[in-house]
């Protein structure tokens, strides 16, 4: 029975057309992540800062959900809650209906700053997870790792230390380290921040290829709207602090994606919509911070 199921799924994946939405069959078996009424604040009582407030968010299975929001609005805080590094003050994070209680290999994070372990070579970093858990034989581990190094194009750099790799290579090694654990959900926190424009584009394309191949449920936090539109099935725009979901835009562009699609009218419309919301939120930030509000008012008066 079970084998029957998987074989139909595999068939579906083969015949599934590469159009905008993943077919239901492609989604089958993928994990869903939900945040229900989640609140999180930081700091001691007398200077408590509410960061996330009653935030509801559904990360749909087999889709790439991009999250954008003003700087400092709590995107990394959101990532930490989903990954289980921190716990919400109230509300729930559910993975396939089960509450998340701590970090686990079913949710792998690629961090904003490189978190490759500096005293381990790229190879040692990649096999770190299976090695810790002891859930793969040595031969299997080596095979999987070699395959991944092939995928991320770092075969010659396998035995280099992280500091010997360029920024882009580090990101790819980190991707490989996450993928070997076969997570149900991939969580990316501004993974390409700090790369130069050229390697950033290469990384985006590269990352898309990986995603479009296995369609793993994916959360991709970024501060670049173009990047978000290029990669995502759904675009979640967060509000300013205290943060909640301000808007969700379905990105209905074909897959596999190409950079040309970004110059289509549709993509332009998505971009304009998201920019408008973000701009509003950014202005709110300005206004709420006292002395600067005069400046903003004066500025908008001049523009009228």
């Amino acid at each position: 029975m079970a084998t029957n199921k998987t074989s139909t799924r595999r068939k579906a994946r083969k015949t599934g057309k590469a159009n905008g939405h993943a077919t239901d069959k492609q989604i089958a078996g993928k994990s869903k992540l939900e945040l229900i009424n989640v609140s999180k604040s930081y700091g001691e009582d007398w200077e408590r800062e509410e960061v996330l407030v009653n935030l509801d968010l559904e990360i749909q299975p087999g889709k790439l959900t991009a999250v954008v929001g003003p700087s400092g609005c709590g995107k990394s805080a959101l990532v930490n809650l989903i990954a289980g590094f921190e716990h919400p003050d109230s509300g729930q994070v559910l993975l396939d209906g089960k509450p998340v209680t701590g970090p686990g290999r079913d949710r792998m994070v690629v961090f904003q700053e490189s978190a490759l372990i500096p005293w381990q070579t790229a190879y040692q970093n990649v096999i770190f997870g299976p090695q810790l858990r002891g859930d793969m034989s040595a031969a299997q581990m080596k095979e999987e790792a070699d395959k991944l190094f092939e995928t991320v194009g770092l075969v010659e750099f396998k035995h280099k230390y992280p500091l010997q790799l360029s920024g882009g290579m580090q990101r790819r090694a980190e991707l490989a380290r996450a993928l070997i654990n076969q997570p149900k959900v991939m969580i990316m926190d501004e993974p390409f921040r700090g790369l130069d424009a050229m390697s950033r584009e290469l990384m985006q394309e590269f990352f898309l290829r990986i995603f479009e191949k296995n369609r793993r449920t994916n959360i991709f936090v970024t501060s670049e709207i173009e990047e978000a539109i290029f990669l995502a099935d759904r675009l979640v725009v967060l509000s300013n602090k205290p943060t909640r979901v301000r808007s969700v835009i379905d990105i209905d562009l074909e897959r596999p994606r190409t950079f040309e699609m970004l110059s289509s009218a549709k993509a332009y419309e998505y971009k304009r919509e998201a920019m408008e919301i973000l701009h509003e939120e950014a202005l709110k930030n300005f206004k709420s911070s006292g002395s600067q509000s005069d400046f903003v008012e004066a500025f908008s008066a001049r523009n009228e």
Partner: peptide
């Protein structure tokens, strides 16, 4: 020590002892 290293290791299933020994 960067907390991200500890977090990354924890995600991958490191025990307290692993964290101490490897990170």
């Amino acid at each position: 020590i960067d907390v991200q290293y500890l977090r990354a290791a924890q995600s991958m299933g490191a025990s307290q002892w692993d964290l101490f020994r490897r990170i």
